[in-house]
Design a protein around this nucleic acid. Structure first.
Length: 424
DNA sequence: TCTGGGGTCCTAGGACCC
DNA sequence: TCTGGGGTCCTAGGACCC
């Protein structure tokens, strides 16, 4: 029989930071979100100090200092690279793999004749630790929902060494009675509130609920969740990721933005990144949206967005920059303390097929090909000689609005100048 | 002073068709 | 006084995920 396992890196970002700087091992470490906004990862030592997930940094700064906690800004170049290494290693030891997020993968694995997958799991866990220095947890079940639940148990039962198989455990019912409803995958704020009001407080109580009741309240989503929890596969296993339907680049500003010129620079910088992303994904955008808003924590709140359809779908930075300028003018209002701006590429389609507009006056296909070669050349130069080697004039400025990253670690695994030096 | 970023899926409701 | 039935497609917004 085939089982599904969920494998994830424990406190992934914090573990990556400890990995490139071993002096952090055994010490409390937290990693902040972009713009040094919130705490998004904690080492076990930081967790033990009562530092909670999602806490705004400015609120906990004093506490962190008092406890001598190491603080790091998020370093996605590092985490992305470590993630790739992890996924490659997992793929070598599993039948099929579905990369679910930067630090998680579902894998399919055949059960051996004696049904016991624990030896496989122990071996894999040791191998990852030895090869990458990353601690992982492995949860095994019959469906993704069960694998998620098993992974939670793997992390929270101290005696199981980061591995839990729902199929080889006779005390499941007792254990599931101790799992709070909020911990079940797919149960969010709204559903957990409804459950609590109805006296459904644990994973086991949800497991035993009448499915009609859940269906009438939460529709097909609720029913699927329940069946998955019971081990019936409803969510497909995706070995090949589906192409993206939209791609977004947005950032909070390091300080409020009030001028059209600064908003334009920020939006343009996001367009440049988003266009690069599209080209990496071999996709063209059929429409783009530009948005901005003031801080949701201050009144009055202002938010505005504008969308335009492209006559011919494109991933050409020049074309998208031009389109975004008109939109930026539309959403700008003076005297607003803007806190964030972003762009969303929509109606994405593969570069394999280009549907041109019947009514539009076209560039010749020769022109389009020339632009394509230009974009490719820019991408290659930036890849080879570093980001922004070739930049767009509209993005070049002092960038006072750029995000805060005061505690950034080095890109020791992706930048040649940051490589660690070993003295012998 | 200061509160992240990037997604997917589902549903309801409106516009439109014959 | 009085106006059907059956369908598709699109969009906005909600809920949830990491």
């Amino acid at each position: 029989m085939r089982a599904i396992a969920l494998i994830d890196g424990n406190n992934f970002y914090a573990s990556c930071e400890q990995n490139i700087d071993p002096s952090l091992l055994g010490r409390p470490v937290v990693v902040l979100s972009n713009n040094d906004g919130c705490i998004v990862a904690r080492s076990p030592e930081a967790r033990a100090l009562g530092i909670s997930m999602g806490e705004p940094y400015f609120k906990s700064r004093h506490k962190l200092k008092r406890f001598n906690v190491i603080v790091r800004s998020s370093n996605y170049a590092l985490y992305g690279d470590m993630s790739q290494r992890l996924m490659r290693l997992l793929a070598m030891h599993c039948k099929n793999i579905e990369v679910y997020s930067i630090d998680e993968a579902f894998v399919q694995i055949d059960r051996p004749p004696d049904q016991d997958l624990l030896p496989w799991a122990h071996h894999l866990r040791a191998l990852v630790h030895q090869s990458l220095g990353l601690p992982i947890s492995i949860g095994i079940g019959n469906s993704k929902g069960q694998a998620k639940l098993a992974n939670y148990l793997a992390k929270n039962i101290s005696t199981c060494a980061g591995i839990f198989d729902l199929n080889s455990n006779r005390k499941n019912k007792e254990l599931l009675k101790k799992v709070n409803i909020e911990e079940v995958w797919g149960v969010g704020h709204k559903m957990s509130h409804w459950c609590r009001v109805r006296g459904i407080n644990t994973a086991q109580e949800l497991h035993d609920i009448n499915s009609h009741e859940l269906r009438s309240k939460f529709g097909i989503v609720g029913v699927r969740l329940l069946h998955e929890l019971r081990g019936e596969v409803c969510l497909p296993f995706k070995v090949i990721p589906s192409p993206k339907e939209q791609t977004c680049v947005s950032r909070s500003f390091g300080r409020p933005v009030t001028s059209l010129e600064e908003l334009r620079q920020a939006v343009s910088s996001h367009i440049v990144l988003a266009s690069e992303k599209l080209r990496r994904q071999n996709q063209l955008a059929g429409a783009i949206t530009v948005f901005t808003h003031t801080s949701p924590f201050c009144h009055p709140f202002y938010k505005q967005s504008a969308t335009t359809q492209l006559n011919t779908p494109s991933n050409d930075t020049g074309v998208l920059l031009t389109a975004s300028w008109a939109l930026t003018k539309k959403i700008f209002q003076p005297y607003r303390l803007l806190s964030k701006a972003g762009v969303i590429m929509q109606k994405l389609q593969s570069t394999d097929y280009l549907q041109v507009n019947l009514l539009e006056k076209h560039n010749s296909s020769k022109d389009l090909q020339r632009r394509e070669r230009l974009m490719k050349t820019i991408d290659n130069l930036n890849k080879r000689y570093g980001n922004k080697t070739i930049n767009w004039a509209v993005c070049i400025s002092s960038q006072h609005w750029d995000m805060r990253r005061k505690h950034l670690s080095h890109s020791k695994t992706t930048h040649i100048i940051d490589l660690p030096i070993v003295y012998s």
